[in-house]
Design a protein around this nucleic acid. Structure first.
Length: 992
RNA sequence: GCCCGGGUGGCGGAAUUGGUAGACGCGCUGGAUUCAAAAUCCAGUUCUUUCGGGAGUGCGGGUUCGAUUCCCGCCCCGGGUACCA
């Protein structure tokens, strides 16, 4: 009996389902292990082979950890809110929930075929009201908190209110947008509206007018990480800047902790660096410059306070609020036109064009705070309104952009660096000695920075300051298919709905588009008013009643639900809390997180932020959600191509193509096989060769017809994607190709000598349009899930991007069949033998155990598969059918190929289903001990021959043995060796 | 530009601390088996060669008895970022 994977896999999947093999419960007697993969957005296209890569790796690790005695949490769910379902709804009127449900089913059936050990009883969906109830609840917690810098953590806003009531905000050290000071009396005198507005400046989620990335095509705002190259990540639509009243998350309060926390994480340097850059910490000072003849100051941030004497002008962002106030009459027009020009430039243009220098003098002057010198104030679009204070002190000698600006507008450049030329470019190194700078003269940059800050602080014109590039995250979306905010507006003051009335469920709408007056889609809902007396949603008809208030019309962004889903898995059905304390105490944070690096500045940052916040309020016992992370590389597609030659009707040598020839050529395409095409390309006269080949073909295929006057141009040959499913080993299934499209039905082919058509190939992203998508279902059908799982791992290192190539999958399938034959003879009888295994087999097995263990410790999966292949090859050669050996092998294999492992486990006489909780074998070094070693003998570092020597020889004895050998004499060529290096058990190198 | 990865046979890749470069698999070549095919098994497969050998891990240099591995300079590919003061 052959290895019948279809029957075996079906049988065990049924067994696992019926026996709840992978249902996980808290078990205090075992150490816990939390293995997680990033949950998918269930797109309509379903899975291709690239998607399950991370799930397979994580499943292997989860199963491995279970065999190692851990209580493993390995859940799966869906990020089921999202734009595609909504776009589809807009087009078709189909409710996104319906589309999503259909897609989910497809995903689930695909996932189920691969044999994952997910505990599906813990499945979560972000669009499930029972789930987003708690997303809304967390939003409320953020609304009701502020960030206390003294405690360096989030605190309830009530604490802040009581401080305000007793002593105002003078002593409050909090992260806030509030710049004004007020006393207790003043606070208590504020009306409700004013108090609410002040508190809003402290809350961790707040409502504010902010410049947002507005995407007109999608009708919504986008976060910075949702924009790629100036266009929307989804759909590639243009994005513009717009001022809108939006909910934001005060993630900047956590900038320092998000940065510092990275040091403790076992993540790839790539992702950590991306986050570090995104947070963008710079240490320096803020310095105030007085504006001459105005009662205004310009505050700037600089990382180089040591260069303060090199300041020769100032530049404000065109949008800076002071511009209008300080511009002198004679420059009013110029400034106006420059601002207009700058405003017209889209983000994209500005990015594309960083070389052009532009700016405009305002006519106003600033006073240098130390030298008292008057310096010009300019505006220029190289200064960004959104970073720092929107103004810079320009130090042309030390900053290339300032230098370029100064050169361009002929502004003086003052050199404050000793022994450095700034004739050709600015000196931007952060080292050297400062000169021409009064009290800073002779100091090294590092010392000068310290000294400068000290003096600035002493003179009260500046102070040490740290700046972050990280911006607060906009949290509103003008969309339907997202979490509604549990917020209504009482006279314009946002109020949150009490916990017991959550979730606030998405209302029904008849259109998913914005309202005619430009409000978000929820503006179309009938029942979208909050009755604050009866605590229920009511219709427009009651809107006039005093206690009825309009609801928030925005919904939350895609990252809301995904920022905390890993917590919900611990306690997915709890309706009293987002997660119970005992559950989160037991499972704690994620031990291994597998997912894409593309979430570095989105999900992975936001999830850390929310975890820190929930930790601050003592809801969870850790602040970093994901201890270790592996970023799986993309699996690329391997596209296949056919090459069509295209006729040109030229009047060549006076002959004119006949109508008959034309009608034949118009009716059919001619494809040339790759190797033939290569012959053409490589020939001395490619054009002539091509015409000869095609001409020969035509006269053979259409005898008696003249094709004079028709020529073929190599550059006009078109490369066409062909479905990889009709290509085998680069050979085209010509009949299938003809049948694939009507226009190819009577196509003709210029074939190779052996009568085959060879396709070209290229590695590209896997996509429908390139006809290179490999669907896992087909492969499971053809080779089995175990083969697919192992092959995906065998392809190469998990973190590396690699092309998918179907060819190699046979090899893995062969391996499993070979394995099967260790247990069965040709007739299908079990051939497993009891008794003691021989030393050779034990050595093979334990060598493999050691390698597998080693690889698992390093999260290396591809070489484990190789190791098991070698093991099976060796055992086959040894004709080993020993039970103890095969038992170890089955367990080793179980995480990778769980179905066949289960089957073989039973063949070995074990109780069905118990392999999941078997003990992972431990390498017994005794079996590996050798009494001899085959020494590679090198001469001048080049290996020449090998010789087996007993292990008990001393260095000298080894040297003597080897030098005495005839072969050595040959390589010595009669010379005396200069030096002989002997590394026992490793190598011998003879230097001649 | 800056910051990370990476570059090894026809292909995917291996070589864990500086110690046999090319494990394992694919593909290819030859053979066995077969009426034939599939499957299976065996042998070969970095290049080159006058069959002694010679060269070889992107390129050029260096350290070392010995370098895919460490150091310096450069080239190419992939990812991130983009006037961040």
């Amino acid at each position: 009996m052959e290895y019948d994977f279809n029957a075996i896999e079906k049988k065990w999947r049924k067994y696992w389902r019926e026996n709840n093999t992978y249902e996980t419960k808290i078990d205090a007697t075992k150490p816990k292990y939390y293995g997680l993969t990033m949950f998918p957005y269930p797109s309509g296209a379903g899975l291709h082979v690239g998607h399950p890569l991370g799930y397979i790796a994580s499943d292997i690790y989860a199963r491995y950890k279970r065999l190692k005695g851990f209580n493993v949490l390995h859940p799966m769910g869906y990020d089921s809110f999202g734009l595609p379902a909504e776009q589809y709804a807009i087009q078709t009127g189909q409710h996104p929930a319906v589309t999503t449900e259909e897609n989910l089913k497809r995903y689930r059936s695909q996932l189920d075929k691969i044999g994952f050990s997910f505990d599906w009883s813990r499945e979560v969906r972000t669009s499930d009201p029972q789930y987003y109830k708690w997303t809304q609840w967390i939003f409320k917690q953020l609304f009701a908190a502020y960030y206390c810098k003294d405690a360096d953590k989030a605190m309830p806003i009530e604490n802040l209110i009581s401080v305000f009531e007793k002593e105002g905000n003078a002593k409050v050290n909090a992260v806030t947008a509030c710049e004004t000071e007020f006393s207790a009396e003043e606070w208590n005198g504020f009306d409700t509206e004013k108090q609410a507005a002040v508190l809003m400046e402290y809350r961790l989620t707040y409502l504010a007018d902010s410049w947002v990335n507005w995407c007109p095509a999608l009708g919504t705002v986008l976060a910075n990480d949702e924009i790629v190259n100036g266009v929307s990540e989804r759909g590639g639509h243009p994005v513009e800047q717009k001022l809108m009243r939006q909910w934001s998350m005060r993630i900047t309060a956590y900038a320092e902790r998000l940065l510092k926390g990275l040091d403790k994480l076992d993540w790839s340097d790539a992702v950590k660096d991306i986050q570090r850059n995104w947070i963008g910490k710079s240490v320096g000072a803020s310095v105030n410059f007085d504006v001459a003849d105005h009662d205004e100051i310009i505050s700037v941030f600089t990382t180089r306070p040591d260069t303060i004497y090199g300041v020769s002008f100032m530049v404000l962002a065109p949008e800076h609020e002071l511009v209008a106030k300080i511009t002198t009459v004679e420059y009013k027009e110029d400034i106006k036109s420059y601002k207009q020009k700058a405003g017209l430039k889209s983000e994209r243009d500005r990015m594309a064009d960083t070389k052009t220098i532009s700016g405009q003098f305002t006519g106003a002057y600033a006073v240098h705070p130390l030298s008292g010198e008057k310096i010009q104030i300019w505006i220029g679009d190289y200064v960004l309104a959104s970073y720092g204070t929107g103004a810079v002190m320009a130090v042309p000698c030390g900053d290339q952009r300032d230098w370029d600006f100064a050169k361009h507008f002929d502004i003086p450049i003052k050199n404050i660096f000793a022994d450095v030329s700034i004739e050709e470019e600015a000196y931007t190194e952060k080292k050297g000695t400062i000169a021409n700078s009064e009290f800073l003269n002779g100091l090294e940059v590092g010392e000068a920075i310290q000294k400068a800050i000290a003096v600035l602080e002493e003179k009260k014109i500046g102070k040490a300051k740290t700046n972050y590039r990280l911006r607060d995250a906009v949290f509103s979306r003008q969309r339907y298919w997202g979490e509604p905010f549990p917020v209504y507006y009482d006279n314009g003051i946002p109020k949150t709905i009490e916990d017991q009335y959550l979730p606030i469920e998405l209302p029904e709408v008849d259109k998913y588009l914005p309202t005619p007056d430009g409000k978000p889609p929820l503006g179309n809902a009938d029942n979208w008013f909050w009755d604050a007396k009866n605590n229920e949603l009511v219709g427009k008809d009651k809107a006039e009643e005093e206690h009825v208030h309009p609801m928030e019309l925005n919904t939350m962004p895609g990252w809301a639900g995904s920022s905390w889903y890993f917590l919900r898995y611990m306690d997915p059905h709890n309706d009293k809390a987002f997660v119970a304390k005992d559950k989160v105490d037991y499972w704690s944070n994620v031990d291994l997180y597998i997912g894409g690096a593309e979430h570095a500045t989105g999900h992975l940052l936001y999830a850390r932020f929310w975890s820190m916040f929930l930790h601050d309020l003592d809801f969870i016992p850790f602040e970093e959600p994901f201890k270790k992370m592996i970023n799986q590389g993309m699996i690329l597609g391997r596209s296949s191509f056919v090459y069509r030659v295209n006729p040109m009707y030229t009047i060549l040598g006076g002959s004119i193509p006949t109508d008959e020839a034309k009608s034949i050529l118009n009716a059919k395409s001619i494809f040339i096989s790759l190797d033939q095409l290569d012959t053409v390309r490589k020939s001395e006269s490619p054009e002539w060769k091509l015409n000869e080949l095609v001409g020969n073909h035509l006269s053979d295929a259409h005898p008696g017809i003249s094709f004079d006057g028709i020529s073929y141009d190599l550059s006009k040959t078109t490369q066409i994607h062909v479905d990889i499913n009709i290509v085998d080993n680069d050979k085209l299934d010509v009949e299938a190709f003809k049948a694939s499209r009507e226009e190819y039905a009577n196509a003709e082919f210029i074939l190779e000598d052996d009568g085959t058509y060879i396709c070209g190939n290229e590695v590209e992203k896997m996509s429908k349009s390139k006809f290179n998508v490999q669907n896992p279902d087909d492969l499971v059908e053809k080779y089995g899930a175990d083969t697919l799982r192992m092959y995906e791992m065998f392809l190469g290192p998990i973190e590396q991007a690699k092309p998918w190539d179907i060819k190699g999958i046979n090899g893995v399938n062969n391996f499993l069949r070979k394995l099967w034959r260790l247990f069965h003879d040709q007739e299908g009888n079990v051939v497993v033998s009891d008794g003691k295994a021989d030393a050779q087999a034990l050595k093979t097995m334990h060598k493999t155990i050691k390698k597998a263990q080693d690889d698992m410790d390093r999260y290396v999966f591809n070489t484990t598969v190789s190791a098991m292949m070698i093991c099976v090859n060796e055992l086959t050669e040894q004709k080993c059918h020993n039970k103890t050996v095969l038992q170890d092998l089955a367990v080793l294999l179980a995480p990778y190929a769980p179905h066949i492992a289960e089957e073989l486990w039973v063949v070995l006489g074990n109780e069905a289903g118990t392999i999941s909780d078997a003990k992972y074998p431990i390498c017994n070094e005794e079996y590996l001990v050798e009494d001899a070693f085959e020494y590679p003998v090198s001469f001048n570092g080049k290996m020449r021959f090998k010789v087996e020597l007993p292990n008990n020889l001393s260095k000298d004895e080894i040297e003597k043995e080897i030098l005495a050998m005839e072969k050595s004499q040959h390589y010595l060529e009669g010379k005396v060796p200069k030096k002989v290096i002997v590394v026992p058990g490793r190598i011998v190198n003879i230097v001649v």
